[in-house]
């Protein structure tokens, strides 16, 4: 059992690395890169959502800002793409800190509303500020690898997103094993109680919010360099944000690999719908229905189903008194 649980991730990692060479065509490399991108974003989302229970439907704001930041730095200032990617992500994180201070003051549903407001706001700004962003016509970003053909670019970005995913997983894992992570989980369970135990909940939440925004912004920047053309309506769409939520919930927000598993199901399914049904809007209905079903019947996700401990309280009540008899002199 132990060997299986250690070996399985290694095997999957090896498979992921070999994936572009295993598939027969570049379309599947493209679809793979897209899936890994969503997996990285969902895992980053889970840095906030999974630990603290603050569900953000507006994380596409950070995706879009990261994308536009990188694109603008490259096109307007002629900054090398690596620098643009990093600087843009840092700027977005700083922005997230400012937003976070206001946003995490409210809990539960109010927080979700704020996150929706955030992404709508960013969408308005980017579309309205035509002179800088090109408005609703979009922004063209030159490819960082002009020597490569389209398929080779897909391969490069497949590995770039894979590295980002690995980084996000590593950070999630590290946080989950730290005292910081224990504090974040305590916030999810009972925020006032955590505060009374000395946990600076406000600072914790803002930190988690920023960390989560950082990796999503990096994904956005990579996306800008990869696709080369940014459409504000797409990158700031609530749909991207809801994909992150759906993937995480479906896989299981309490598990390291939950969002990854969710992405492996949802992203290919989305691509399949696109091919099978064409450019209709019915894929929205499919996404919506899956979300409804997950929320109703599997709110803890697939992994929780698989790893569920045996049902019912594991400690019989009377054992407390028995223990008391033993320790009371």
């Amino acid at each position: 059992m132990r060997i299986a649980s250690r070996g399985l991730p290694l095997l999957l990692a090896a498979l992921a690395i070999a994936y572009p060479w295993l598939v027969p065509n570049y379309y599947l490399v493209y679809a793979g890169a897209l899936t890994v991108m969503y997996a990285a974003m969902a895992t980053s989302w889970n840095l906030l959502g999974g630990f603290t229970g603050y569900v953000s439907l507006g994380h596409s704001a950070f995706f879009g800002l990261g994308a536009y930041g990188t694109g603008l730095l490259v096109t307007r200032l002629g900054v090398p793409w690596v620098v643009a990617l990093v600087v843009s992500a840092v700027l977005v994180t700083a922005f997230a800190a400012g937003v976070g201070v206001a946003a995490v003051r409210v809990r539960g549903a109010s927080f979700v509303i704020v996150s929706i407001a955030l992404v709508s706001m960013m969408n308005l700004v980017v579309q309205g500020w035509r002179s800088l962003t090109g408005g609703s016509t979009g922004l063209q970003v030159p490819s960082p690898f002009p020597g490569l053909h389209r398929g080779q670019t897909h391969m490069v970005f497949f590995y770039a997103f894979l590295a980002l995913l690995a980084l996000a997983l590593l950070v999630w894992w590290y946080v989950s094993r730290s005292r910081f992570g224990a504090g974040l989980r305590a916030i999810r369970e009972d925020e006032d109680k955590a505060e009374s135990l000395g946990v600076p909940t406000g600072a914790y939440k803002v930190t988690a919010f920023c960390l989560s925004a950082l990796f999503v912004a990096l994904a956005g920047g990579l996306y800008a360099l990869w696709f080369g053309s940014l459409d504000p309506i797409f990158v700031f769409s609530i749909l991207i944000g809801s994909y992150m939520v759906l993937m995480s919930l479906l896989g299981g927000v309490r598990h390291l690999f939950g969002p990854l598993l969710g992405a492996l199901i949802v992203a290919p399914a989305g691509e399949y719908f696109l091919i099978a049904l064409g450019e209709t809007q019915i894929h929205l209905t499919a996404t919506g229905l899956v979300l409804v079903l997950v929320v109703l019947f599997m709110p803890d996700g697939i992994l929780a189903r698989l790893t569920r401990r045996r049902a019912g309280p594991s400690i019989p009540d009377q054992s407390a008194d028995q223990r008391l008899q033993e320790v009371t002199p």
Binding site: R179, A182, R185, D190, A194, V199, A203
Partner: peptide, 30 residues
């Protein structure tokens, strides 16, 4: 009030005595 879905040991490790970065980044199983 306890944290219902944390283990007993995790419940014990939530308390923060002072906010120092080194302690926050320290492993839970310190």
């Amino acid at each position: 009030r306890v944290f219902p879905r944390l283990t007993v040991l995790e419940n014990m490790l939530v308390a923060v005595r002072r906010t120092r970065l080194r302690e926050l980044l320290a492993g839970l199983r310190d």
